[in-house]
């Protein structure tokens, strides 16, 4: 009798899991392995008269690493991820501290900081393109003190170095509110007694932040670091709409797109260069690298949690 009850509850468990599992297998697992397979072929998903699918071994992977644009995208994505992880987390944490303090209208601020996250990245990119190209120079023309902003030489999107900074600004604006919410939850979970006790012992607010709040929210850091790392590494939509990969720059005496992050490089390889199989190979590399980096990150962050 007991055994059949257990069997039944197991069955129910699997049945409840089934819809999600079905969707997961259909749209994640199967395409993942099909994609990994295509990476080793000359697949083009078009009606070319070239004799169909052929197995070509590691050629797509080797050619990818010979392409300066791909190498450049790799390095650039690393730099971009680092920059945006730092700025998003710093600003999100500062905002979270702000809206958990005794502030009037703090709920309105919370909602306000969160709203940019609800706007799609593509639209955001076009809005900020307008801000960088039109609004900021217009400001420079009106205010004499800021006249340098009106100089076309100083447009942020006209140079690849500053265009990357512009992307960091936009993604910070987009994600800081979201990450802030996670920090708020963590900060509000810090027991008030600890702060009170520390206050009685004469700790000022900086010391309380450093010795109480920061260690107590270490768990949140694991989550936020992971999220920002993955978001930034996979950045695509803002990249497309804000810069389209431009302006150009030179690498190894070859002009290449100067702000083309990995995801955009994969897309361009697949659909502009019409080389879907090589795009797929790059996507596999992308997956492996991102998986390794994020595993390391979670491991390091978790260690900090345990030490407390």
């Amino acid at each position: 009798m007991k055994g059949s009850m257990q069997k039944e509850s197991q069955l129910v468990f699997w049945l409840f899991l089934l819809p999600a599992l079905f969707a997961f297998i259909m749209v994640m697992v199967i395409p993942f392995f099909m994609g990994a397979f295509y990476a080793f072929t000359n697949w083009s998903s078009s009606a070319k008269l070239d004799g169909g699918l052929k197995f070509i071994g590691l050629k797509n992977f080797i050619d990818s690493f010979k392409d300066p644009a791909f190498i450049y995208s790799f390095g650039l994505t690393g730099v971009y991820t680092l920059l945006s992880m730092v700025t998003v987390n710093l600003i999100a944490f500062a905002l979270a501290l702000l809206v958990t303090s005794k502030l009037k209208l703090k709920n309105i601020y919370r909602a306000g900081f969160f709203i940019p996250n609800l706007i799609g990245g593509l639209i955001l990119g076009y809005i900020w393109q307008f801000i960088f190209n039109n609004a900021i120079p217009a400001l420079g023309k009106v205010i004499p003190f800021l006249s340098a902003l009106a100089d076309p030489q100083n447009l942020m999107l006209s140079k690849n170095t500053t265009a990357i900074i512009a992307m960091v600004i936009v993604s910070t604006w987009q994600y800081a509110g979201y990450i802030m919410m996670i920090y708020i939850a963590a900060i509000e979970n810090v027991p008030e007694e600890l702060h009170e006790a520390a206050k009685i012992d004469g700790a000022n607010s900086w010391m309380r932040l450093r010795m109480i709040t920061l260690p107590m929210v270490a768990q949140a850091f694991t989550v936020t670091m992971f999220l920002t790392l993955v978001f930034s590494f996979k950045q695509f939509d803002v990249n497309v709409s804000l810069t389209s990969g431009g302006p150009s720059t030179m690498l190894m005496n070859k002009p290449i797109l100067g702000t083309e992050l990995l995801a955009l490089n994969i897309y361009n390889t697949a659909f502009i260069s019409n080389n879907l199989a090589m795009g797929q190979a790059r996507a596999v590399i992308f997956f492996i690298v991102l998986a390794i980096i994020s595993l390391i990150q979670v491991y390091v962050n978790k260690k900090k949690e345990i030490e407390l």
């Binding site: 140079k159 431009g246 150009s248 030179m250 002009p255 797109l257 100067g258 502009i272 260069s273 019409n274």
Partner: peptide, 22 residues
């Protein structure tokens, strides 16, 4: 000429020239 050649090889060259970098 292929889309690849025009969009990924030539476009950056024109862009570099326009920006006065070359």
């Amino acid at each position: 000429f292929t889309g690849d050649f025009r969009d990924k090889i030539l476009t950056p060259i024109y862009n570099q020239f326009a920006a006065g970098k070359i």
